[in-house]
């Protein structure tokens, strides 16, 4: 599935500003994510990309500007509110509870209850349904190498754990998935699997915002690359139009780009 740039952006930010005292973390930043694409967000340390992402995922409330989801202005005051509107975030490290099993982790905080009196009065969990849906999702995303859905997450490798976190976002994210450095803690081979997984999620129709420091990863999977510099968007490039060194040059200010390539 290819991205639809002729459509309305699914997630958009206009003129976002966030100040911490005299420090301006976001300085009139714009942002667009289109349906069906992987948009990488890159930027040097301190460029304000994590502030931008926090604003988009509800972890931070901007001072000025607006965020539009499906063209409608939204205001999140917490990550939970963003999640309720269909924006899921995969965090770098803190994604899963190690002693709980895969199905429990996938549904943590959003458990399914049994129908009827068992669920309403006795609050009984529908473990079978959760396990089935977890299995289906893991299978759909090509994570079937994880044989046993009831094994504790701590028995999984780092990449598999990240896989569980990604599966959770794909299970519940109806609009957008934001991934914060999903490969930063992983080895080469595991990174590969997670990258494939990211593409898989995109191909299933969920647009993805990918924050990464890893240029080869960004250039491999991204459809477009949002380069953040000095608190705002410096450029949007594509892996086809620019090289990695160009991207680094834009990030560091050595190169300026006038147009918003799309």
């Amino acid at each position: 599935m290819s991205a639809h740039y002729d459509q309305q952006p699914i997630l958009q930010a206009r003129g976002l500003v966030k100040r911490y005292g005299s420090v301006t973390a976001i300085d009139h930043a714009d942002f667009e994510l289109y349906p069906g694409e992987i948009l990488a967000v890159i930027g040097d340390n301190g460029a304000g990309k994590s502030s931008l992402i926090k604003a988009l995922s509800g972890a931070l409330v901007p001072d000025e500007g607006e965020i539009l989801l499906d063209g409608k202005p939204v205001n999140f005051s917490s990550p939970m509110e963003a999640r309720e509107l269909g924006i899921e975030t995969v965090y770098q490290n803190l994604a899963v509870a190690p002693a709980l099993n895969i199905a429990d982790n996938l549904f943590l905080g959003r458990e399914l209850r049994k129908p009827g009196i068992l669920g309403s009065v006795f609050r009984m969990l529908d473990k079978k349904a959760m396990e089935q849906r977890a299995k289906d999702k893991m299978q759909e995303l090509g994570l079937l190498t994880i044989q046993d859905i009831s094994q504790a997450v701590e028995s999984l490798s780092g990449g598999q754990r990240q896989g569980v976190a990604v599966a959770r976002s794909a299970l519940f994210g109806s609009k957008v998935v934001i991934m914060d450095e999903p490969t930063a803690a992983l080895g080469v081979k595991e990174s590969r699997r997670v990258l494939n997984l990211i593409k898989e999620v995109r191909d299933r129709g969920l647009p993805i915002v990918l924050i990464s420091h890893n240029m080869p990863h960004v250039f491999e999977v991204a459809d477009r690359i949002h380069v953040h510099r000095l608190g705002k968007r410096a450029a949007v490039v594509t892996p086809q139009s620019h090289s990695m060194s160009d991207a680094v040059a834009i990030m560091t200010g050595a190169m300026e780009v006038e147009t918003d390539a799309a």
């Binding site: 990550p79 939970m80 965090y91 803190l94 994604a95 509870a97 943590l108 905080g109 959003r110």
Partner: peptide
């Protein structure tokens, strides 16, 4: 921390 991020 993970529990909080899961919305608990």
């Amino acid at each position: 921390a993970a529990a909080k991020l899961a919305g608990i």
